[in-house]
Design a protein around this nucleic acid. Sequence first.
DNA 1: GTGAAAGCGCTAACAG
DNA 2: CTGTTAGCGCTTTCAC
Lengths: 344, 344
Amino acid sequence: MGMLEELEDASATGRGATLEDVARVAGVSRATVSRVVRGDVQVRRDKVAKVERAVHELGYVPNNAARSLASRQTGAVALIVPEHESRVFTDPFFVSAISGVTAGLDVSDKQLLLVLSSPQDHARTRRFLRGGHADGLLVVSHHDGDLSVEVLQEAAVPVVFIGRPPAGLTAPFVDLDNTEGGRLAARHLIERGRRRIAMVCGPQDMPAAVDRREGFEKELADAGIESAWLSFGDFTLASGEREATALLESGTEFDALFASSDLMALGALKKLEGRGIHVPEDVAVVGFDDIASAADDTISLTTVVNPGRRLAELGAAMLLDLIAGREIEQRTVLCPELAVRSTT
Amino acid sequence: MGMLEELEDASATGRGATLEDVARVAGVSRATVSRVVRGDVQVRRDKVAKVERAVHELGYVPNNAARSLASRQTGAVALIVPEHESRVFTDPFFVSAISGVTAGLDVSDKQLLLVLSSPQDHARTRRFLRGGHADGLLVVSHHDGDLSVEVLQEAAVPVVFIGRPPAGLTAPFVDLDNTEGGRLAARHLIERGRRRIAMVCGPQDMPAAVDRREGFEKELADAGIESAWLSFGDFTLASGEREATALLESGTEFDALFASSDLMALGALKKLEGRGIHVPEDVAVVGFDDIASAADDTISLTTVVNPGRRLAELGAAMLLDLIAGREIEQRTVLCPELAVRSTT
DNA sequence: GTGAAAGCGCTAACAG
DNA sequence: CTGTTAGCGCTTTCAC
């Protein structure tokens, strides 16, 4: 299937007291009970007390379905991740993003629906979007073509991108300045005296990956040097290994490697070490993301910090504002920092 | 918050054609449209065609909330994982379990709600359970006290455990014969000529961890040898490292180590190698689970195969049967196998 | 086979 | 501040 999500939704099934029961016991009208239950402040204190007692007594729990039906709100927000399950559960960046969204939603009573939609699930995702399951959408890790304007529009709810949307798709977003991130990495390497710098880029159908590459290339150009090698992975550990191997086998001389994700950097590191290449003596390595294991003693990877958690949190807040009908900044772009450790 | 879930649920928000619209366009009654939409076979072919055309024409999508409200069914099934987010996204076993459930549910139209409920979220989980959000519950990775009979009963829906529930909690379940798994590991090590065997157990508030330890101990006892050392981790990589360090520092002599999870085995392996101990020459290592990286060339860990995916799939099928009111086998116990690789 | 009618439990104007 | 009144959109007996 390919949908995975956070939730708390759906509807109450059967049993249980209804608003009406509570109203009867408390000796007030249904509307009043409804107000109390939702915290609609305009109710006299004594009635509130009565209602609360009745609610407790009856073990009343609101019926979600009825609530949604009447309010035309689902009480949920969906986080759309156009990646395969295995990737999401494997890349720490997503974990931080998810926990960031969770945190950002915490101030509201919205539930998180995690929607993993690998390419094959296109139809399913579309159905989901049309199904009106959420009051708002958060999109992370978007590749070109994953979601079209039309499909998004069908959902008829506010959308916020975590990471700049591709050209042609206009939507509010939060993002890291990935171009600057690429520059940062390149500059650092140059300052360390490296001149034969290779880069393993991320998938070029993702704006973030493109930006990182461009920033890297620009910085090199500004310094009047050319990149020693450029290749493309998909942000995974395996692709990092693969591209490092290719780099090694190409016979290219290089004294530094910039990987567009920590996972790829880790994969490359493994291969380099396997060949007896010393890091950072022979080759300096810089990653991107700053996943937890990058700071691990035995790895200690120099990397560009990608505050995924923070971005996600901001994105969630933006979405909440949008849903509430508040005005928001259409774009929020954070400035990257470099965490210098032992690989450079 | 601490709930994470799969979903597809909630309710349609606004817009869109209703059953009534379709009925009008198709020239039939609402009831008929409803029957057609749900595939309630008793409808004349020509009317079916008319309805389908109208549905297509209007782009009709059923409103979930209304559906749930009327049918008193949510169309969702919850997978309860009493673990912290970080753990779930970090342990490949959960990934297989999740994908197994996903697969098992695929034959139905039920949606998966992933509920991560760390201990602090007890109240939240309880609320969720009482909320009637799902038509059935699947519980995996249950620790003593995580869920009580009462709490489960409040949900008032069928429950299936993936992994034997603790004493006192009676529920249908699917499980691996963990005792046999522990035996298998011990026997293998003994057959390899090892006699000073250490074990890093899992948390003893989990039946699976207890069983693995007991199987291990029994097999050793049958062979007339005593375990060299026994300690307890929590199934994570970090705890594997920690316990291995403790083992090393205790000065205990040992020529084999059985870890109750692959992640712990990996952590231990790292520490052993860090100390210049050769595996398997000096120390043989056996893990449990057979996560993907266990089969990795550079690791090649001998391990007891825990078919998490299969178990989860079976569990989901059982739950579906239960929800449909069908009779089921109260317990399904799979027999473990050993994957012999390079660490023994 | 098919339609009519009666809600599911709640929210949301609208009076008062 | 509070009660009354309508539905939200769909499923589900129950007759026909």
